[in-house]
Amino acid sequence: MMFLIILLVIVCVALALFVLIQNPKGGGLATGSSASNMFGVQRTGDVLEKGSWILIALVVVLSMSITTMAKSGSGTGKSRLKDQVDKVVAPAAIGTETQQAAPAPAPKDSL
């Protein structure tokens, strides 16, 4: 499950970069230098748009699979956490008398 979370973070960063590279007015990656004109304005926009849609789909699929795995309990940490919660002793209500254990005897000096 940890692998999927790391993969989700990487995909989210890539999606942010794809979105920041795009310019809604037709600029963006397709303008600025002659080297970027090898695809042309329209084709560069199409590649970035398709890449964005693919990354969005990956984010959705990864998020749903992480959620499904977490709810089904296939993660290893869930059972340990549940065991720890079950071991916790509930505090006594205010105003109720509780029996307190007698204090331990003081250690005797051997001097």
Rank of each mutant, 00 (worst) to 15 (best):
S36C: 07
D46I: 13
T44F: 05
K71Q: 10
I56C: 06
G28I: 00
T68A: 15
G51S: 07
V60I: 15
A93I: 01
A101W: 11
G51Q: 03
V13H: 06
A14S: 08
E49W: 08
T44Q: 07
G28E: 02
G28R: 00
F18W: 02
Q100H: 13
V41A: 14
G27A: 12
G27N: 06
K50H: 06
A92V: 13
V41P: 03
I21K: 06
A102G: 00
V59T: 12
S74G: 11
M2W: 08
L15I: 04
W53Y: 14
T67R: 10
V60N: 01
M38P: 00
Q99W: 09
G40N: 06
G32V: 04
A70C: 06
L81H: 09
K108M: 08
K50I: 11
I94C: 08
V85R: 14
I54C: 02
L81F: 13
V61N: 04
A90G: 05
P24C: 03
V47R: 03
W53T: 03
G51A: 02
I5C: 06
T44C: 06
A70H: 09
S34G: 09
K108R: 11
P105Y: 00
D109L: 12
V61E: 05
P91S: 04
P107A: 15
V19K: 04
V11M: 05
V85Y: 10
T31H: 12
A104N: 09
A70R: 13
V59E: 07
T44W: 03
V85L: 15
A90H: 09
S36G: 05
L55D: 03
F39V: 00
I5P: 02
L58K: 02
S34L: 09
L15N: 05
A92H: 14
R43Q: 15
Q22T: 05
L8R: 13
S34D: 08
L55Q: 02
S34P: 01
M69S: 07
V89Q: 14
A93P: 04
I21S: 06
T98A: 09
A16C: 10
D46N: 13
K25I: 10
P105T: 03
W53R: 07
L4Y: 13
A92T: 12
G51C: 00
C12N: 12
R43Y: 12
A101F: 10
G73L: 02
S65N: 06
R43M: 14
N23A: 01
L111H: 14
F39Y: 04
V59A: 10
L81S: 10
P103R: 06
A16P: 00
A70M: 10
E49L: 14
A57V: 08
I56H: 00
L15E: 02
D86R: 13
K50P: 00
E97I: 07
S110I: 15
G75I: 11
S110C: 10
L111G: 09
A101G: 04
E97L: 10
V11F: 02
